[in-house]
């Protein structure tokens, strides 16, 4: 019995050690990033770039390219890996100069962006500042976007038109608005406009539509145009048109059931798996029954002794 107690206390010790370890590492994980001190001479550097529309738009496109993956679309640090939140009080309280210094330095998983010219980095800083601004700070305008299709002999042309809607419902062509045009695919939107598509003075952009985009079995595509401008509320339009290549349904993608989900399970497989599984377990249960019989038999002969 002494040995048993000994063993019990051993198990208890090991258990509490393990619990302590899990506790410590959990809180180690939950803790935020360590402080990142910035030298004073870097903090006092002033941002020479005005946070105007051009700067913010350039900043946004650079942010999308370089920062979004980790810091997330809205800058909350909710990207693919754990990253600092850019909208937190803590982050926003530092000076622009301090942020620039950090962009130059890099730390841990965060790379150094020294290779980029400073004016581009200032644009990003301006954009990051705008992330934490509350929506009511900016007066948002409304717009509608519409699509027009124009099929010439060999060439297919697409026109997206943006009109600003005033408070009295009046529509006016909006100039210099960025419009993203793309085709809906399985895992997202395939862009067909270049990254710098700004509407002309009559509110339009024209795109030559590529011929090699694969549609469904009728060649049908869903084309999506959306307004991408920080002064405007989101607006988008989607239209179907048979401008894609025909993608015929074939046996291998439609019927080949071994690849597909359980709705397509081949009957022979369903039957052999289920029958096999059930019969093995029936036999196991039968043996369990025999063992039970052994016990009953033992109890009987134990009584008769």
């Amino acid at each position: 019995m002494v040995k048993m107690n000994h063993m019990k206390s051993g198990i208890f010790k090991i258990g509490s050690l393990l619990a302590a370890f899990l506790f410590v590492s959990f809180f180690g994980f939950a803790q935020d990033f360590a402080p990142w001190p910035v030298p004073d001479e870097a903090s006092v550097v002033k941002n020479p770039v005005e946070a105007n529309k051009t700067s913010l738009e350039a900043g946004k496109s650079l942010y999308t390219l370089q920062c979004k993956a980790c810091h997330g679309e809205t800058g909350r640090g909710d990207g693919l890996i754990k990253a600092a939140s850019l909208v937190s009080e803590n982050f926003q309280s530092q000076t622009d100069g301090a942020i620039l210094w950090k962009l130059h330095q890099g730390r841990g998983q965060m790379p150094s962006f020294k290779a980029l010219p400073d004016d581009q980095l200032w644009n990003v800083i301006n954009y990051v500042r705008s992330l934490s601004k509350k929506p009511e700070d900016i007066i948002m305008k409304n717009a509608v976007v519409s699509l027009f299709f124009n099929e010439k002999a060999e060439q297919k042309e697409l026109t997206a038109k943006v009109e600003q809607v005033n408070d009295n419902g009046e529509k006016l062509p909006a100039q210099g608005i960025k419009v993203n045009v793309g085709v809906q695919k399985y895992f997202g939107i395939l862009p067909i406009s270049s990254t710098s598509n700004y509407t002309s003075e009559n509110g339009e952009i024209n795109i030559v539509f590529p011929n090699n985009i694969i549609g469904d079995e009728n060649g049908e595509l869903t084309i999506i145009a959306s307004v991408d401008d920080m002064e405007f509320n989101p607006a988008r339009v989607s239209e179907n048109i048979s401008w894609g290549q025909i993608n015929p349904k074939d046996y291998w993608s439609e019927r080949r059931a071994l690849w597909k989900n359980n709705d397509y399970i081949p009957l022979w497989l369903l039957i052999s798996f289920t029958v096999g599984a059930i019969s093995v377990w029936l036999v196991i249960m039968y043996v369990a029954l025999l063992v039970r019989k052994i016990k009953i038999e033992g109890d009987k002969s134990g009584l008769s002794d």
Binding site: V280, V283, I284, Y286, V287, L290, V291, K293, I294, K295, E297, G298, D299, S301, G302, D305
Partner: peptide, 27 residues
């Protein structure tokens, strides 16, 4: 499980073992 080694118990046990050694092969 109250094993007494009666003839009936041996018969049941040998039968169970035989079933299991055949069942284990395909599995």
């Amino acid at each position: 499980i109250g094993w007494q080694g009666t003839q009936e118990q041996w018969r049941l046990l040998k039968k169970s073992i035989r079933i299991m050694i055949i069942l284990i092969l395909p599995v």
